[in-house]
Every structure is written in C-alpha cells, then in structure tokens.
Amino acid sequence: MVRDLSVELCGITLDNPVIPASGTFGFGEEMSKVYDLDILGSISIKGTTREPRFGNPTPRIAECSSGMINAVGLQNPGVDAVIEHELPELRKVFHKPIIANISGFSIEEYSECCAKIDKAEQVEIIEVNVSCPNVHNGGMAFGTQPESAAAVTRAVKAVTTKPVFIKLSPNVTDIVSIARACEEAGADGLTLVNTMLGMRIDIMRRRPVIANKMGGFSGRAIFPVALRMVYQVAQACRIPIIGCGGVATAEDVVEMMMAGASAVQVGAENLRNPFACAEIIEQLPKVMERLGIERLRDITGIIK
C-alpha cells in the first residue's frame, strides 16, 4: 500500500511533514551538498532581521545531556541580502514552498522585515520568532506576554497576505494564553516551541560555558516538554500547529502529530546528524505501516 505522507498547512500542501527548523539548516546551501533537499516537506530558513547581525560573542555552544545550548544571537546577513542572495541561491536547490523565519527588536522591525520578505515569491509561510528581547517592553521577550505576542501578530498580519505562523517561546507559565492571544490577533498558525532558556558552567574555570552566560536549550531532552505544549495548545486553539523541539525520529514525528501538530520541525538533531531529516522521511512510511496509518494527516490531534 502507498502511504500518504502529505500534510496541509493553511491550504498549502507539503509532500511530508518534515521541515528543518530555523537556525539548524542555514539557508540550505551547505545541506544541498549532503542530500537532495527536494525530499523535504519545506525548509524554515535561518532567522532573518531587518539589519545584518553578527550575533553574540563565542563560545556560543555548550553540550548538555541529550541536548545542547546555543547563544548564536540571530546571526544573519539582513533581510535585503537574504532576498537578493540567499533566496535565489536556495531556489536553485529547493523547488518547494519555504517558510521565512523573521525576528525583530521592535514592532516596526518585525513589520518592515515581514513586508520585505513577503515579496519573495518562494516564501509561502512567514514564521515570526517572538522570543527575542523586547526593547519596547522593559526587556521582556515579545513571546512571553499575550499582549505583546498579539501586537506583533497584528503588525505582521497587516503587511502580508501569506499565512503567518507565530513561533512561541516555551519559557512561559501559560503557553495556552499566549497561543490564544496570537490566534485572536489573526495568526494563521503556531510553531511550538523555540528553545528553553538554559545554562552550563565550566566548573574548572569557574565561569559559564557560553559567553552570553545563558542560551537556548534544544535537542532530544526537550521533546516531552515541547510535546506537552503542542498538546495543550491543540486542545485550546483551532489554527494549525508546527511541532518543534527534540524531534529526532519518525516515531517522534508521529507522536508530535498525535499530540496535535500538522507538521513537524527538526532542529538540533541536524547538527549532530546531517542526514537526520532524510532518515526520518525514509523511515516514516515504515513506521506508518507498522502503526496501521494510511494517511499521515489523519493522526493530527487524535489524542484528546
């Protein structure tokens, strides 16, 4: 039997639910030499800001049990360079809809960045990262307050007609209230979740491993927490969810989808295994067969 791996996000059909997460795949150039990128469902490109950014000082990376911490700090060449250079290059090696991940440090920056990248033809979904420091709101992250998350959602929705997914931070007490605020503000979907704030200390040198002291914890270790948040939000919202956080196997993809995800992003696993997404896609039909799943999309949200 032919297993149907296709899924749908806001009317856009993906051949399969597997999407490399933003920041773990660059703009595809390096990975295009590793395998044929067209096997992927989509790609969420490296987080893009209005201005070019170098990011944080090094060390930016720390090893953890079943995961890692990064404090890259949104290094990217800026939205103009992404549109002029990175996207045309990606077009040569990837011929499917892409997800443009954008970040900002003010509401205006989000909306200007979104308005620009909205014009790129191959961008079919805009993913808005709201876990960056909010210079307008006493240093709190946009994604940790329902009001500010909703304000960003409204600002980007005003400048694009493409589906907008808000990528939420897990570093909150009540993810459901923030998810609901985004949905009410017009978000077309949600990506759940970004990295968890973490820290490591070099006990020999008696200083933090990461130059920025803290960073985002990701990898297999965070899977149960991400899954729980996907489930909670799926129970409370009607818009589609892209599940993200610690996904490393085809079984993880199925589990995320059962919890309520319509598609799934693979992040840190790409850094330790460059073939991670390719292997998951290869395994998915076998796992579906074993579990008696004919159409993958049918399992989204079956856990009530």
């Binding site: 390096e30 590793v34 490296k46 990011g55 930016r60």
Partner: peptide
C-alpha cells in the same frame, strides 16, 4: 555546534 556550516555556532 555542527562543524559543517549550518548553525553559526563558531562564527
């Protein structure tokens, strides 16, 4: 992080 250019960890 990765060692092959995708994560920007060693910039």
């Amino acid at each position: 992080g990765c060692g092959f250019g995708i994560c920007m960890g060693c910039s």
